[in-house]
Amino acid sequence: MENTNFLQEILKISLVALIAYISNYYYKYFTRENPLPGPFPLPLIGNIHQVLKNGSFDMNKFQAKYGDLCEFYAGSQRFVVLSNDDLIQKIMKPTVNGSFHNRVNNDNEGLEEIGLLNTGLVFNNNYDNWRFHRKFYTKVMMSPSLIKQSVIVVRNSFIEMEKIQ
């Protein structure tokens, strides 16, 4: 008798926790910042079941249904899909005065743990540091002499690999 009461209490607590999680999930979904068109997500799995049909992501169908700028969820993680070349070029434009400088969250524990957060060009949210690295990259890596030398090295490597076969 006690065992069934205990199991009933565990079931009730689990049901209340599940309802609280679902309520919180949809509260965050409906009050999210910058909502975009996309399929309606389910708690825990998001809308992976709608996006990945037959094991592949068909971008053309997704773009035809939801437009050039849309979103989907994998679990509770939001992903924004850009399928227009003009939108991608605006965001990835390598200018110092661009409006899309911060491309990664500061609270990304994985990047911080391996030492990539706020260093270099890609994962750097510190604007002055990023600007310094950008100038350095532009002057050194994009110099005509380095480009000419890299073309020679690639050509010679290709010739060597061709001889091996």
Rank of each mutant, 00 (worst) to 15 (best):
I88W: 02
H133A: 11
T119E: 15
K93I: 05
N84P: 00
N102S: 14
L87D: 15
I114A: 06
G120Y: 12
G110H: 06
R134D: 07
E112F: 05
I114M: 12
N124T: 04
M92Q: 10
D86C: 04
W130N: 01
K90E: 13
Y137W: 13
G120F: 08
Y127W: 10
F100G: 02
T119S: 12
N126R: 09
E113S: 15
V122W: 10
L121H: 03
D86R: 11
N124A: 05
I114P: 00
Y137H: 12
W130V: 00
Q89M: 02
L111C: 04
K135C: 02
I88R: 03
F136W: 07
N105S: 14
T95F: 08
Y127R: 15
V96K: 15
V96C: 07
L117G: 00
K90P: 00
N108W: 15
R134T: 11
K90H: 07
N105P: 08
N118P: 01
K90F: 01
N106P: 03
N106G: 13
N126H: 13
D86E: 13
G115T: 10
G120N: 07
S99Y: 10
K135L: 09
N124L: 01
N105F: 11
T95R: 06
V96Q: 12
E109H: 10
Y137A: 14
H133T: 09
F136T: 15
N125F: 02
H101V: 14
V122Q: 06
Y127V: 15
N124S: 05
G115Y: 03
N126A: 08
V122Y: 06
D107P: 00
G98M: 07
I91T: 08
E113D: 09
D128P: 01
K93L: 10
D86S: 14
L117R: 06
E109P: 04
N102I: 04
W130A: 00
Q89R: 10
N105W: 11
N106V: 06
V122R: 05
F132M: 13
M92V: 14
F100A: 15
E113N: 11
D86V: 15
V96D: 14
K90D: 10
G115M: 04
E112W: 02
